[in-house]
């Protein structure tokens, strides 16, 4: 928030300089309603309607049919898909997988990002660009590149991760082929890949805290830890809330890396098949578009519900802070 409001002001600032017009006592009415605005909205509205609203409505209808990718047309089957979905353990397993992934990936994605931002903010200015580059660079890699690198690193025998483990005298881990570790392995990869984005948000927020706040606190005799817990963390609260919100929603949409790193198999025991993975599989691999549409709405509802709850919590925190 802080940078965008900051730049917002910055751009607004020159506007203030060249003599603000004396506010006209009586505006010539409110802006007159005209159709011009409608024309301006039209292109976006058209795309919005065709690629968002329409698939949403059509998909809802499809979920009541036996539509298949392999044949044209479809028959109405009532609630059959929805009933099947509620009794389909694979649906719940994939949702559970998504939730577990969200739960294990979000804390490190927030905590490590914060640590990185604090270190970068604190380290000598000359190091700044290097740290920023190192932490953020992975975020710029296409997911396929990330997956290729990590699949290769996780290889038993000749991969780097196990090489380091054995060099340290530890046992090898069959990262991607053991159903107990595959999701964690994907979470580690995800942290490495995307933490840089959260890091940048934190860094921007940290740099928005004026140094006199700290100086005043230091004069009052607050130690570094106190300054961190009493000043930095509270001032970052809103940024943290935002990052957690963005992160949870992003984690709930897990698919790309899980799909590529398990070669589309979902991993041993389907331990790494997230909700979108199952939707993809039901619809495109299993050809059952109708059934996949029904599951889509379940996930859709979960994501919207989580976003709304979070949004409420996070706004309330903002008000009381």
């Amino acid at each position: 928030m802080s940078p965008s409001t900051a730049t917002g002001r910055a751009a607004g600032a020159p506007a203030a300089a060249p003599a603000p017009r004396p506010a006209r006592p009586a505006r010539p009415g409110r802006r007159r309603a005209s159709l011009a605005g409608l024309w301006f909205v039209l292109p976006f509205a058209a795309l919005f309607a065709v690629f968002l609203v329409w698939p949403m409505l059509a998909g809802l209808w499809t979920s009541f049919t036996d539509r298949s990718l392999a044949s044209p047309g479809a028959d109405f089957v009532g609630l059959a898909n929805w009933r099947e979905m509620l009794g389909d353990s694979a649906v719940w397993q994939s949702l559970w997988t998504t939730l577990v992934f969200t739960a294990i990936s979000t804390p490190p994605l927030v905590a490590i990002a914060l640590a990185m931002a604090l270190l970068t903010n604190r380290a000598a200015a000359g190091l700044g660009w290097f740290l920023r580059l190192s932490y953020f660079a992975p975020f710029l890699l296409p997911v396929a590149v990330v997956a290729l690198i990590w699949e290769w690193m996780y290889q038993p025998g000749f991969g780097m991760v196990n090489g380091l483990l054995t060099a340290a005298g530890l046992a090898e881990v069959a990262w991607l082929t053991d159903q107990n570790t595959v999701l964690a392995a994907i979470a580690i990869t995800t942290v490495w890949w995307t933490v840089g984005f959260n890091f940048l948000l934190y860094l921007a927020a940290l740099q928005g805290i004026p140094s006199y706040v700290y100086e005043a606190a230091a004069l009052d005799g607050a130690g570094p830890w106190q300054r961190f817990t009493r000043i930095t963390l509270p001032l970052l609260r809103r940024t943290t809330g935002l990052i957690v919100l963005l992160q949870i929603v992003a984690s709930l949409k897990l698919f790309d890396q899980a799909y590529i790193m398990t070669n589309g198999s979902g991993g041993p025991g389907y331990a790494a098949r997230p909700a979108i993975g199952y939707i993809f599989e039901a619809g495109f691999t299993g050809l059952r578009v109708g059934y996949a549409s029904a599951i889509s709405y379940l996930l859709f509802a979960v994501i919207v519900a989580v976003s709304l709850v979070q949004f409420r919590l996070f706004s309330r925190k903002g008000e009381t802070a």
Binding site: L38, M56, G59, K253, V289, S296, S307
Partner: peptide
């Protein structure tokens, strides 16, 4: 200012909540 402005804007803001990733199957269809 145009007719339906507030209504349309609300609709778009609601659209922010829609996760397009969850809609791939209907969208592909």
């Amino acid at each position: 200012e145009f007719p339906g402005r507030a209504w349309l804007f609300a609709l778009f803001v609601a659209g922010i909540l829609v996760p397009p990733q969850a809609l791939i199957v209907p969208l592909f269809d």
